[in-house]
């Protein structure tokens, strides 16, 4: 594995603002969990039960350990014959899917999209995530009509996404925010955009706890958002340094 890909994977696993020693630790854990590489499942940055009662431990365990792991395993099988896949930064691959060999293009779209989406998802959740503040709160007020309207619009967009997919807040280079949905495991990087945060509305994200009640899940999910991390991601996006 090249230095670039190691560095990139570490960034993906830990968030881009981590101190120098932390990525090494996370990388070692991920390697232990999935020794086949080069793609690795980033460890959850909190225990599986940490988001209860909003997201239950069983859901987290399966979502992270089975669904996300499946995307990682599939990527590793693609990477066997296409080592470039693992050495290029994720945004570059997803932003140029037309350059990926046709035989694996759909697989890369689905599985690298899934890997990127879930890596972001685990990172922007957490217990005791604080409150929106500072620059990101100002941007929410400016671009999304304030917290109350933002959350209502985000929940409505997540509810309207028919079938499996995601609802995102995208962030442009100049820090402008927008609510956007994508089907399946598509990611805004595929259109040259970046996700500040996003919520998974595949049924596997909520079915054990909420069954058909996606609206209840969308509402409860706000209790899990790690606003400190979202603030860091916003600053990183404006500096052109956002990971995945």
């Amino acid at each position: 594995m090249s230095l670039l890909s190691r560095r990139h994977l570490m960034m993906a696993a830990t968030g881009i603002v981590a101190a120098a020693a932390a990525p090494r630790l996370a990388f070692a854990q991920a390697t232990t969990a999935a020794p086949t590489g080069p793609f690795t499942l980033p460890p959850l940055p909190y225990p599986v039960a940490a988001l209860e009662p909003h997201i239950d431990a069983k859901t987290m365990e399966i979502h992270h350990g089975k669904h996300h792991q499946a995307y990682v395993s599939n990527l590793n099988s693609f990477a066997k014959d296409n080592p470039k896949l693992a050495s290029m930064p994720v945004p570059e691959v997803l932003g140029n899917l037309g350059d990926v060999p046709e035989a694996i293009r759909t697989g890369v779209r689905n599985n690298l999209g899934g890997h990127a989406n879930h890596t972001m998802f685990w990172e922007i959740m957490g217990p005791n995530g604080g409150k929106p503040a500072g620059e990101v709160l100002a941007a929410i007020d400016r671009d999304l009509g304030g917290m109350e309207k933002f959350q209502a619009d985000f929940n409505a967009a997540g509810g309207r996404q028919f079938g499996s997919g995601w609802v995102f807040v995208t962030v442009s280079k100049d820090g402008k925010l927008a609510i956007e949905t994508r089907p399946n495991q598509d990611n805004p990087m595929m259109d040259g955009k970046r996700a500040l945060l996003g919520n998974d509305v595949w049924e596997h994200a909520y079915y054990l706890n909420y069954q058909n009640r996606r609206a209840d899940y969308l509402k409860a999910w706000w209790n899990t958002v790690n606003w400190n991390k979202v603030g860091e991601r916003y600053a990183a996006a404006k500096a052109g340094q956002l990971g995945v």
Binding site: G163, S164, W202, E203, H204, Y207, L208, Q211, N212
Partner: peptide, 8 residues
Amino acid sequence: VWEHSYYI
């Protein structure tokens, strides 16, 4: 094959 058909 929607997940609601088999997830439980």
